[in-house]
Amino acid sequence: MKAALSVLGTKARLSFEPKGVCLIIAPWNYPFNLSFGPLVSALAAGNSVIIKPSELTPHTASLIGSIIREAFSVDLVTVVEGDAAVSQELLTLPFDHIFFTGSPRVGKLVMEAAAKTLASVTLELGGKSPTIIGPTANLKKAARNIVWGKFSNNGQTCIAPDHVFVHRSIAHDFHKIIMEEVTRVYGKDFEAQKKSPDYCRIVNDQHLNRLYELIGDAKSKGAKILQGGEIDALDRFVAPTIISKVTPEMDISREEIFGPLLPIIEYDDIDHVIKQINDNAKPLALYIFSEDKEFAQDIVGRTSSGSVGINLSVVQFLHPNLPFGGVNNSGIGSAHGFYGFQAFSHEKPILLDRFSITHLLFPPYTGKVKRLISMTVRYLS
């Protein structure tokens, strides 16, 4: 590293050292990816790891345990299965770093536990990631990207478009185009969508009931179901659902949806949309669809989010050389590639003296030394 004038004559470098014993708490929505992704970063940085997979996906958790036991010695990587009580017990242990993916509510509990031992944390959380469609947007491209990003994994994706703001001048056309895209991808009706090999199910009855209540609350307060809305409780199936006439007092406007329900909100003034975004917690992602570069850049400059996708959705997660993470309520720290390695490392600065003259400024502060200090301050300023 290049030396500043104030430390002329020294040589500096950074040494990346492992943080130590790390805990990875993985979520249920992408249990394999979000166990092994952080594990690669942790091992690359030289750490040992305990993985706690989600109890809501027990078959995947069992598979993860089998792979880890076959591939690693128990003192390097260990999988601990169990329910929330097991996670709570693990969080009492003095880990050097904790990597958690999940909800902001649980993220606060993880951070509180980490504070007791001053463990560092990486928190990948969530929030209501907004999508803005400007008046110049390519509506077919926007619909294609939103349908894929929203309904993949049945909407159970932390960076899925949560809700869509569409300019009133193009709202009617967008409604038509996005419904056609849903039909093209997943089928023309309830039965066809249930048979689609490309459409997932809700993870458990608790989340199914939560989505059922969101639909019911929205309808009771005046929302209109443009498409979908059907539920098969036995199959834990929720149809891809497009909702219009959504208002702020509806639960669907306040809660992270985390399911295949897409509210569409019409707007006239982009300033109002930006204010609404900024009045809420900072989201994990923000998506903008527009052919007007200045329009998109203005929104980027006046909002804060973990990441931004322009004329695409979710794909930023796949970029190997970009950091992935949130900001404040949507997360702390980053993952992926070098940034994941960095998260699990302590960056230790090392400074080596070669021909430094800083000793000339040491006490006793004689007149000569004071004059030299004064000259140095004037020169450096």
Rank of each mutant, 00 (worst) to 15 (best):
H163Y: 15
I178Q: 05
H175S: 14
Y199P: 02
I177M: 13
P161G: 10
C158N: 08
S196F: 00
D198E: 07
V164F: 12
H167M: 11
K176F: 12
F174S: 08
D198W: 03
K176W: 08
I170T: 11
V166T: 15
Q193C: 11
H167W: 15
Y199G: 01
T157S: 12
H163P: 03
E181P: 04
Q193W: 04
Q156F: 06
F190S: 05
M179A: 12
G187W: 04
A160W: 10
I178S: 05
K188I: 07
V182W: 02
T157K: 06
F174Q: 08
E181S: 01
K194Q: 13
A160Y: 10
T183V: 06
G187Y: 05
S169V: 11
N154D: 10
G187P: 06
A192T: 04
F165P: 09
S196Y: 00
G155R: 04
N153G: 02
D198M: 00
D162N: 06
E181C: 02
N153R: 01
H167T: 13
V164D: 11
K188G: 05
H172L: 14
C200I: 03
P161F: 11
T157E: 07
Y199A: 01
E180D: 13
S196P: 02
K188P: 00
V166P: 14
V185K: 09
I177Q: 10
Q156C: 06
P161L: 09
H172P: 08
N154K: 08
A192Q: 09
F165H: 14
T183W: 05
V182D: 05
A171E: 15
D189N: 13
E191G: 00
H175W: 14
C158H: 07
F190N: 09
G187L: 03
Q193S: 10
S169H: 12
R184G: 01
H163K: 14
A160K: 05
V164K: 09
T183F: 03
A160C: 12
Q156P: 05
H175P: 04
I177N: 08
E180T: 04
R168P: 08
E191S: 07
Y199H: 04
K195I: 03
I178D: 07
A192L: 03
H172E: 15
I177K: 08
C158K: 03
C200R: 10
Q156H: 08
F190I: 01
I178V: 13
R184E: 08
D189E: 04
P197R: 03
F165W: 15
T183Y: 05
V182N: 02
F174H: 09
V185E: 13
V166H: 15
Y199S: 04
D162Y: 03
A171L: 15
Q156G: 03
Q156I: 03
H167V: 13
F165N: 10
C200A: 14
N154F: 09
R168A: 14
Y186S: 00
I170K: 12
D189P: 00
H163W: 11
D173H: 05
D189Q: 05
N153E: 06
G155M: 07
T157R: 05
H167P: 12
S169T: 14
D198K: 00
S196R: 00
I178L: 07
Y199I: 04
A171S: 15
V164E: 09
F165S: 09
D198R: 00
K194T: 04
H163G: 06
T157Q: 07
K195M: 11
D189V: 01
